[in-house]
């Protein structure tokens, strides 16, 4: 598939899949017994979380590839994945709080998954701040790659320590995904695929844009010389 094709294919697929997923969530999936209608947040919440973790993983891989190859395309991928990851994690935290308030009766709790998402958000948002603080292109890419790698290395430790940290506290969370009915599972898979396609389209768009921006900047410099 040529890049031009892919640029139109992914958004087109996303515009099909996202309404389908929303329709399935509200009209196909049954109401959850104990939680009621609020459970319908869960489908997109989990999809967003999955896409967010995936984009941080892509950020780490792009960082490693940039340090090895020093190609601009990997910096574009790194920047795009960090940015999208921060946006998605923000939405995960917001939608999670809005679910936790009626169900757990609290906006926030120090559950390992919540703690990990929050700390990840802080690490990668600080990466965005770092990007904005450096003008020089190769330096910005190198520093950002180092931060992305070390941030991702931190993830398992954060999760482990959050679990240990919590162990003296009473727990208010239970796993939301256990014992899903088959129609719920189908809905979950559809919304997850929809979200992944949407994010892939977003990622692709951002990468192209990033490369265009740096090409334009190059042209500008060449003209001024």
């Amino acid at each position: 598939m040529t890049p031009l094709n892919r640029a139109t294919f992914l958004p087109a697929l996303a515009t099909l899949l996202v309404p389908l997923a929303i329709g399935m969530i509200f009209f196909y999936a049954p109401l959850e017994k104990s939680m009621g209608i609020i459970q319908k947040i869960f489908y997109f919440h989990l999809s967003l979380a999955g896409a967010a973790f995936l984009s941080f993983f892509i950020a780490c891989v792009s960082g490693i590839m940039y340090l090895l190859k020093r190609q601009r395309i990997w910096d574009a991928r790194l920047a795009a994945s960090i940015e999208i990851g921060v946006v998605l994690t923000t939405l995960v935290l917001i939608s999670g709080s809005l679910w936790g308030r009626p169900i757990w009766n609290t906006w926030w709790t120090w559950d390992p998954r919540l703690t990990t998402s929050l700390i990840l958000w802080f690490i990668f948002a600080s990466g965005l701040i770092l990007r904005s603080a450096i003008d020089e292109e190769s330096k910005r890419a190198t520093f950002c790659a180092v931060m992305a790698i070390i941030g991702f290395v931190d993830v398992p430790i954060v999760f482990l320590s959050a679990r240990l940290w919590r162990s003296i506290h009473p727990t208010v969370i239970r796993s939301a995904g256990i014992g899903l009915e088959s129609s719920m599972l189908v809905t979950l898979v559809v919304s997850m695929v929809a979200m992944l396609v949407f994010c892939a389209a977003l990622f692709h768009l951002r990468c192209i844009q990033h490369q265009q921006e740096s090409t334009v900047r190059d042209l500008q410099q060449q003209l001024q010389l």
């Binding site: 609020i38 946006v87 679910w99």
Partner: peptide, 26 residues
């Protein structure tokens, strides 16, 4: 509960569209 649901959906999609608007601005 439905109020929370509506707020959550509005937050998710308005967040994503805000990001898209920012991208189109760039």
């Amino acid at each position: 509960h439905s109020t929370y649901l509506i707020i959550a959906y509005m937050a998710i999609w308005s967040g994503l569209s805000a990001y898209l608007f920012w991208l189109s601005g760039r």
